[in-house]
Design a protein around this nucleic acid. Structure first.
Lengths: 211, 211
DNA sequence: CAAATTTTTGACCGATTGGACAAACGTTAG
DNA sequence: CTAACGTTTGTCCAATCGGTCAAAAATTTG
């Protein structure tokens, strides 16, 4: 009995070109959404003809699916690293910081994910209800443990996680709005440091155990 | 000299049908995005034929534009109500609550807006840099005044507003994810009350002036 | 080198899309 | 009633889309 996903067994050229296509597709999909993007756009961004692209990915959806699969792994990595053993405040601080760094360094990935969820997550619903829920429940239990031990203020761990997701990803997904509102002076690269300072104060001061 | 936008001078039927179309278009656009939606889908949702719909709105973009214009007014209403004179804590609490209520009662509007921003706000960029920035700057000054007066903890007012937007709108835009993670037990209608409690604690406790 | 294999391309196809149009149908005011 | 005006629809069109295919070009393998 072989596994469902067979060994790909790809050529050197196949590996390279597939990477090229995925990079181009990330650019295009994150900017226009799945239906808003055309194979031609992706092919042009990847520097090849449409039939050539379709030689590496037989369907448009295959590109998107591959992209989403890769994304989810790296996307949830910061939460996976939240460690039961570590100091609660330090753990939460570095989680927030890592999430904000991802918003800064991988805004396209964030927007790709946001697009998918906005449309009702038609392609990753099972993952949300399965892998993601399991992970969040697990980490919520960790946080709840810290609360029970009096290390941090008691709150709802799930909504705490949601609010960290929301605030950090906001700087990637709503980037144009953030920059427009902050204006040319404060909207430059420094906005992420300002955001980091603000979020640290908001979450960590708020979570300090009360006398 | 007349204004740029002439008086529409519409029939009773025109008014009714245009409303019907806009309602249907909100449903469709918010679910699939602009490019992901077709005129046929909107026409069917509005219970009329495509040519008939095009009799009321000459182009697909016109529907979207009308929808966005209406949206922005109601969308920014809560922030406009933030009152210099009122008690800071009360004002912020009701702002957060109102925003969360909008996420609960008008999720389609929220997603329509999120979609537009995600795509780089191609159709409302001037509004963001103009009207929106002006409003936010004005309210940030109000908040800063409260901070200077020692009524609330000092932080960055702009990022405070961003984080309120992000956390509240998250419950509309990422609704499927929230429900998937909370599961059938906690993901029901009660999730908004849980969120309200959490956000109140997060923001208001964090903003209480320190001893 | 030469055969086998992989990669690339131009031409093409059916389906879908946004939109035009004129004719048919309804409504309303005189 | 009837003429004028507003509304609705069936039909059609050009453009775009995702995807196919066979043949040419390039690469790998023996």
């Amino acid at each position: 009995m072989t596994t469902g996903t067979e060994a790909p067994r790809r050529t050197r050229i196949q590996q390279e070109k597939r990477e090229l296509i995925l990079e181009a597709a990330l650019e295009v999909f994150s900017a226009h959404g799945f239906r808003g993007s055309t194979i031609d756009q992706i092919a042009e961004a990847a520097g090849m003809s449409k039939p050539n692209l379709l030689y590496y990915f037989r369907r448009k959806e295959d590109i998107h699916e591959t992209l989403m699969q890769r994304l989810l792994d790296t996307w949830l990595a910061p939460l996976r690293e939240l460690d039961d053993i570590g100091d609660p405040m330090t753990e939460l601080r570095s989680y927030i910081r890592r999430k904000l760094e991802m918003a800064r360094d991988f805004p396209r990935e964030s927007r790709l994910f946001a697009n998918e969820i906005l449309q009702g997550a038609p392609r990753i619903m099972p993952l949300l209800e399965g892998e993601l829920k399991t992970l969040v429940d697990e980490k919520a239990a960790v946080i709840r443990g810290w609360m029970r031990a009096g290390k941090i203020t008691r709150t709802d761990p799930w909504h705490l996680i949601f609010s960290i997701w929301a605030t950090t990803q906001h700087y990637a997904d709503f980037d144009v709005q953030v920059r427009a509102v902050l204006g040319p002076n404060r909207g430059g690269e420094g906005r992420f440091e300002d955001a980091a300072r603000f979020l640290e104060q908001l979450f960590l001061d708020g979570l300090k155990p009360k006398g």
